[in-house]
Structures are given as structure tokens and as C-alpha cells.
Design a binder for these strands. Structure first.
Ligand code: FES
Ligand code: FES
Lengths: 145, 145
DNA sequence: CCATAGTGTAACAAATAGTGTTACGGTCTA
DNA sequence: TAGACCGTAACACTATTTGTTACACTATGG
């Protein structure tokens, strides 16, 4: 039921763009993600729809941020990529009328909702600027771990 | 990257066995799960390995609980099915040496660890006996929601 | 006004994971 | 010794994600 490395990859891209400045083409982003431009456009399109980036066609075009890194949280990126639901509880649906199944599903649902709230809180707390700062600090220190 | 309805399904089966007594064959469990006996054996095998159920071959054989429902938590079932990790953070691995990617991964990792702890706490809190009681209460009340 | 460097998108291929199925071997008991 | 079980390998089916190809559209610069 779960998902993907899109969140981590897009955060990487956005922070890269925020730190190293200007516009990037799908081609260049694709290289940095070891993938190809179509996949990049597909994914970036979600971010554009959510207002995090914008694209321009034609010569000299490409992708750029619509606001500074400090105004983008991990939660923003997550929402752009996946919508409201972060985690969804894997429930069973074999005997919809069986009270045992329903009781089990209800308990699981509640547990996953708690976890989702935790995750949402954590995601909201972290801005991309913060990630950029950590990266720059560790790069300056020459750290590898 | 996530998975499956196995947790919900196995909870259903175990509570069923706990409430309605005795031994069940893979065949009967398969019918109640709208699946087939091989899938059941495959999944129940994980629970057996973890000591939650035991199986007996030969005529009159089948599956039975090794302990009462009140001594089985949702977390036990989860661990039996999936091992230590409940959620794992979907990180990126495109440029392992890039400090930005590492910073992003580190933050995501931490967020998912928090969520996993929440989920673990919730799972540990719920015993199968509790689910059984809720089910019996709602069945008696003739409730459907 | 056309060549070039871009995005947008549909259609399809490949990889992955979960699930279902068949087949056959082992084990226990009547 | 036959029948009712589990154990397991091998394979097919399905859904999702990711990668690829192809082509249409757009803006810029000469
Ligand atoms: S490759 Fe550009 S920030 Fe990692
Ligand atoms: S079918 Fe037996 S408890 Fe739901």
C-alpha cells in the first residue's frame, strides 16, 4: 500500500535548486536523480500544481521555485505528491458484515491515524531551509556520516 | 513501499479462533478470508515461527492458538508478520555522497522513526481479547456501523 | 521565420510486490 | 493403508511504480 522515494528525491531537488540558485531543466534534474526527463516532469508537475515550483517552456525554460526554502516544509512536498493521506491503514475487506473484522479494522484504523498525525507533525516541523543548512554545515566539515 | 492486509486478516483469524474455540484447518480459514489454503499456510507459518499459533499435520490436524487472546497484542502479530520494522522510511539513494541528499534522508528517517514509535505504542496497547470484546458487544447490539 | 532548447503528455515497456494456483511430498490417525 | 491434514516450490496473475519512446507545443535567438 505504501509509497515511494519521490518525497526524498523531490526534497533533494528543491534544496539543490534553493541553494545553487536559479532555474534547472528536466534534463539536468534527471541526471542528478539518475533517471530521465519525463519522470522528472511527471513528478515536478505535482509540485507545480501545488504551487511549489513553476515551469517555463521554450528556449531557456525550466523549473524554478516560487518561494524561498524557508517557506517550504516537508509536509508541503508530501501533500503535493500524495494529497491528504500520508499513511493509510491496510484493512481487510473479506467479510464486511463480520463484527470481528470490523472491530479489528477499527482498532487498526485508529492506530494508523495516530501514527499519521505524528508523521504530519514531524513533516510540518522541518523546512527545506533547515535541510539546506544541515547539508552546508556537514559539507563544510567534510563529514561523511 | 509498504504492504498489505495481512495484519488485519490475521487478526481477524486469530480472534475468530479465540472466540469460536478450537482448531481450524487451512481450508476453512481460506474460505473465511476469500482465498485459498496455500496462502493461509504461507501466512500462518510466520505466526507459528513467532510462537503465536501451532499446526498439526495429519488427520484432524489444523491450526490452534498457543495462548489466550488476552496474551496476544496487535504488535505481536505485526512482528510475526513483518519483523522489527513496521514503517520504513522511503529514502533516496541517487547520490550517496551528496550532503543535501544525506541531510534530507536523515530528517525523513527521524520523522518516520517517530511515527513508527507511535504505531508501535498503539499496537502494543491493543490485545486481541479487546478486539473480541468489541466485536461481541457490537454483535449483541446488532450494530452495523 | 526557422532552428534550437525547452516543457506536456500519451502510450507503452520493464521491474517489483502481493496474491492466487497447481502440484507434489510428508505426517498423522482411523 | 487410505484419507485428511500441513509444507513448500514453482509458476501465473494483478497492480503499482518507474523507465522509455514518441510527438505536439512554446519561447527564444539569429
Ligand atoms: S546533487 Fe545537487 S544537491 Fe545533491
Ligand atoms: S468470519 Fe469468523 S470471526 Fe469473522
Amino acid at each position: 500500500m505504501r509509497q515511494d522515494g519521490r518525497l526524498a528525491r523531490m526534497i533533494h531537488v528543491l534544496v539543490h535548486m534553493g541553494l545553487l540558485g536559479g532555474r534547472e531543466t528536466s534534463e539536468r534534474i534527471a541526471q542528478m536523480l539518475n533517471t530521465n526527463p519525463v519522470v522528472v516532469r511527471r513528478t515536478m508537475a505535482s509540485l507545480r500544481q501545488y504551487g511549489i515550483v513553476e515551469s517555463e517552456g521554450g528556449r531557456g525554460g525550466g523549473w524554478s521555485l516560487t518561494r524561498p526554502l524557508k517557506d517550504i516544509t516537508v509536509l508541503d512536498v508530501q501533500r503535493a505528491l500524495q494529497g491528504e493521506t500520508i499513511l493509510d491503514a491496510p484493512l481487510s475487506n473479506d467479510h464486511p458484515s463480520c463484527p470481528v473484522e470490523r472491530a479489528a479494522n477499527a482498532k487498526l484504523q485508529r492506530a494508523f491515524e495516530s501514527a499519521e498525525q505524528t508523521l504530519e507533525r514531524e513533516f510540518r516541523k522541518v523546512t527545506l531551509a533547515e535541510i539546506g543548512e544541515i547539508a552546508m554545515a556537514s559539507a563544510k566539515a567534510g563529514k561523511t556520516g
